[in-house]
Each structure stands twice: as structure tokens, then as C-alpha cells.
Design a protein around this nucleic acid. Structure first.
Length: 439
RNA sequence: GACCCGUUCGUCUAGUGGUUAGGACUCCGCCCUUUCACGGCGGCAACACGGGUUCAAGUCCCGUACGGGUCGCCA
């Protein structure tokens, strides 16, 4: 029986969660979920000067938003704790002692360096294949500091100790760690332990090919919900940045992503961030949402836009579900329903003014709307009016749309009529007629 | 600079010696439609370059160029 898979995400809390970090977390998480293993969240907070509590919280909340949950770590417990490196000093001291006893470390300026074995180190990377780094040349690979002069331990050392103590089977991390791997391998060897399997994934670049850094658009995970993204869409998008299902499918629910994920599908070359495609992908996920869920998801954006929640918001939202790409577009998309009267988009009014028959048609429409016994099927009045004028119903649609919404595009007319109600619909038609006559 | 990893349409990618080099985003055209959007159809557009190996190379080898990464008592 194979040993159960154990993977981890090990952020250091020095800033918000970066999109590249999120993808690293995602791949580790997917791999664990796919193989029924455990995904561990370990906080690498050994650099006291740069760690902040806000950063810690930002990372947790971004992971939670993405739906990347952990089986061991902060608030999840687990048998290999503590999961904060700042609380593992005695564990490190114990392992450091082993290095000392084995004569593998020596003091240098108050710090302790690990003596590398001077030989070529070959790794079998699950993504990069066989990579050999020659440690024979000392000038290229000076012995590394594992313990600082202030007694604290350095990244390479704690990372390896934790990976072995926590029984990690697979380490999926950014390619920026590829050159660190021989160092880690040497440490494992010195401890007489079997290292995990490594998979180094290529980095994510900006649209222009430059390195994506803190301030770049799209870099911070927390800005995605603000911009109106669904977490599933972000997950889907970053999964496809550097990983391919090897066929033409692109839109995946999380469950399918887990099922289909594999290390073999990971690319070797860095990929660029494409905001247009991310937006399109969000729209695809929005389209798949049940209408009620869509309305619910759009609700918070009303507040951000400074709008009150209208009584029939759910209906309004449903009417624009396939019109928006981002949830943040919902407030603007439904704004025309609100208040009394219409506000015209200049191009819409201009087009309507060009139609000399418009005032007459609108007058007839208003009459027929009034004549309707009830408002269960307001579109009937359009057919009636068209017949009276000897026109196809289509001829009335556009003037009516502009009269009701002030726009050239938007939801289905039937939806608009029923959401607006009879009184408001007639009011807007009359207002439009008046505006047309003034002009 | 040294050492590593890479290079298929503008972008994300499929492609593991024989393909009209496929899909997606973007852009353009058409269709659907009361509008917009969705959807459908079609178009533009790629194997970085130079040498090999081979009957045959996007696919294998070498070099060059370009991009990325790493060279800390950061992680």
C-alpha cells in the first residue's frame, strides 16, 4: 500500500496572498484531494521583522475565499503541530544537535554553516525531470548558514526539518526554489531521511512578460472578490495557467478539477496573466450559477456601489445574469430599474429621436397598457398595438425599450415591463413622449 | 557574470518523428435575436534562429538568440 499523500502550502506572512502563491497552494491542494491525502497549512514565520498579523489573516482569508481548505494547521489541528515555525524552536534545536553531532556544521562569525558534500547533486523533479547541480565547485555553492548568530534558524533548515517531521510526500513549489532543492536534498541526506518528491512549477508573469510583483494588477488574491470574480472562476483560471487537462475542455467545476488534475499536465514555461481571459472565464462560471445564487452573489456589490437593495432585486438580478461578466457590473446593469422616470443614454435618445413615428407608437402602447385587464402578460399589449398600427411587433420593441430603460441594450422587454410594473412603465413612456416633443 | 529552467498564433495551450499544426481568449465578419449578452458559423494569426541526425523533425542532438529563475545570517 502506498503511503498516503501529504502536501503543504507554506507561506510566510509578510504580505497578502499573491496569485502565484495561490496557484502553488491550489496545486498542492488538488494533488492531496485527488489522492485522498492531507493538505497542510504551515506558516513560515521565522523572519520576525517582516511578519505581520494582518498578513497572516489576509492569507487565511484569501485561502478560505478560494475554497482551499486545510486538514492540518491553523484552527484545523493535526498531529504534527505546531504549524507555526515560530513555535517550533525546540524541534529545530533537536535536529540541529544531530547536525552538530555528525560534524556537519561549523561556526562562522557566530553563525553556523552546514558543510555541503562536494559532489554533483541530481534530483528527479516531477516537472523538470532530471536536473544536476554540481556542488564540487565550492565557490559556486558556499556552505550555507543554517543558524544565525542570534540563534534563530534559517529557511532552508526549518523547511527541511518541517517537511520531514510532517511527513510530506510531495512538495509542489515555485520554480524559484529549484536551485534550493540540492541544498535541501543534502540536508535530508545528512539527517539520513528520505526526501519528498519535488515538483517545481513555472512562475506567473505579467501580461507584458515581466515578473509579476506586489503592486501589479491581478497580483493580490483579495482584489478578485472586490472586482466581482467568483472564487471558482479564479481557481479555474489559475489552474489553467501552467497546467493543461490535455484536451479542449476549459470550464471546470472544482470537483472536475480535482478529478482531472495531475502533475504530468504541468507545463515547463512561465505563463503570462491575461485579464481578458480571466474575465471571460468568470462570465462562464456566472452563467452556470442557478439564478437565485447569482442574485445572492451580486447582492454585496449593491452596497459597495452605495445602492439600497430594491424589493425585487432577485428578479432584477436574474434579468441581467447573462449580461455581465463580473459581479461588480450588477449594480450598473440594474440601476435603470430604480427610481421614478427614465434617464436616457445620449446615443439611445438620439436614435429614438430619429424615429418620427416614435411618439405616436409610444402613445398607442401606453393606451394599450392601460387597457390591459391585469399585468400578468404585458407583452400582449405590444402585439395589440402593432396590429392597430399595421406594423410588426418588432417595430415597437426598440422605441419601447428606450422609453423604459433609456438604453439601447439590456434585459428582455417582458422582464423589464413586469419588474417596472404598469404605473411606472406608463409613466416612463409618457415622460419619453414629452422629452421627444420638447426636442 | 556563473549556474539552472524554458521558447508552438498577441495571450493561455494541444501536439511525444509522417497533422491541411487543433482548441480557447482578444479582434473582424455572418447567423440567431425586440436590444444587449449568450449561443452558432467563419476569418486573421504560431512551431525563435542556425546547424546536424533521419526517407521524414514543431517533435531527437548541438549551438546561438531571447525570456525566466538562482547565486543572503530573506523566504
Amino acid at each position: 500500500m502506498p503511503t498516503p499523500v501529504r502536501t503543504r502550502f507554506a507561506p510566510s506572512p509578510t504580505g497578502y496572498l499573491h496569485i502565484g502563491g495561490a496557484r502553488t497552494a491550489l496545486f498542492n491542494w488538488l494533488y492531496a484531494r485527488k489522492h485522498g491525502g492531507n493538505f497542510i497549512l504551515r506558516v513560515e514565520d521565522t523572519d520576525e521583522a517582516r511578519n505581520t498579523e494582518e498578513a497572516r489573516q489576509a492569507i487565511f482569508s484569501s485561502l478560505e475565499w478560494l475554497g482551499i481548505d486545510w486538514d492540518e494547521g491553523h484552527e484545523a489541528g493535526g498531529d504534527c503541530g505546531p504549524y507555526f515555525q515560530s513555535q517550533r524552536q525546540d524541534i529545530y534545536a533537536t535536529w540541529f544537535k544531530k547536525l552538530q553531532d555528525a560534524g556537519r556544521v561549523y561556526e562562522d562569525d557566530g553563525a553556523w554553516r552546514f558543510r555541503f558534500e562536494r559532489k554533483p547533486i541530481t534530483m528527479q523533479d516531477l516537472v523538470c525531470g532530471e536536473v544536476t547541480i554540481d556542488y564540487t565547485d565550492e565557490s559556486n555553492t558556499p556552505d550555507m548558514v543554517v543558524r544565525r548568530s542570534d540563534g534563530s534558524f534559517v529557511f532552508h533548515f526549518v523547511n527541511v526539518v518541517d517537511d520531514l517531521e510532517m511527513g510530506l510526500t510531495h512538495v509542489i513549489r515555485g520554480e524559484d526554489h529549484l536551485m534550493n532543492t540540492p541544498k535541501h536534498l543534502q540536508l535530508f541526506e545528512a539527517f539520513g531521511k528520505v526526501p519528498p518528491a519535488y515538483a517545481h512549477i513555472p512562475l506567473i508573469l505579467n501580461a507584458d512578460g515581466s515578473k509579476m510583483s506586489k503592486r501589479d494588477t491581478g497580483a493580490a488574491v483579495h482584489e478578485y472578490p472586490d472586482r466581482g470574480f467568483l472564487s471558482d472562476a479564479v481557481i479555474n483560471f489559475i489552474a489553467l495557467l501552467g497546467w493543461s487537462p490535455k484536451d479542449d475542455s476549459e470550464i471546470f467545476p472544482l470537483s472536475e478539477l480535482i478529478e482531472r488534475f495531475s502533475l504530468e499536465g504541468i507545463n515547463r514555461s512561465p505563463s503570462r496573466f491575461d485579464w481578458d481571459k480571466a474575465t471571460w472565464m468568470n462570465q462562464q462560471h456566472l452563467l452556470k450559477l442557478p439564478p437565485e445564487s447569482f442574485a445572492e452573489a451580486g447582492l454585496p456589490y449593491l452596497q459597495s456601489a452605495g445602492m439600497e437593495t430594491p424589493d425585487n432585486f432577485t428578479l432584477m438580478a436574474k434579468s441581467v445574469q447573462e449580461k455581465v461578466q463580473l459581479l461588480s457590473e450588477v449594480p450598473e446593469a440594474i440601476r435603470f430599474y430604480l427610481g421614478e422616470g427614465v434617464e436616457f443614454d445620449p446615443p439611445a435618445l438620439e436614435k429614438l429621436s430619429g424615429n418620427e413615428a416614435a411618439p405616436k407608437l409610444l402613445t398607442v402602447l401606453a393606451e394599450n397598457f392601460r387597457a390591459l385587464p391585469d399585468w400578468t402578460s404585458p407583452k400582449d399589449a405590444i402585439a395589440t398595438s402593432a396590429e392597430a398600427e399595421g406594423l410588426k411587433p418588432g417595430k415597437l420593441m426598440f422605441p419601447l425599450r428606450v422609453a423604459l430603460s433609456g438604453k439601447t441594450g439590456g434585459p428582455d422587454l417582458g422582464d423589464i415591463l413586469s419588474i417596472l410594473g404598469r404605473d411606472e412603465s406608463i409613466r416612463r413612456i409618457e415622460q419619453t413622449i414629452a422629452t421627444l416633443q420638447d426636442a
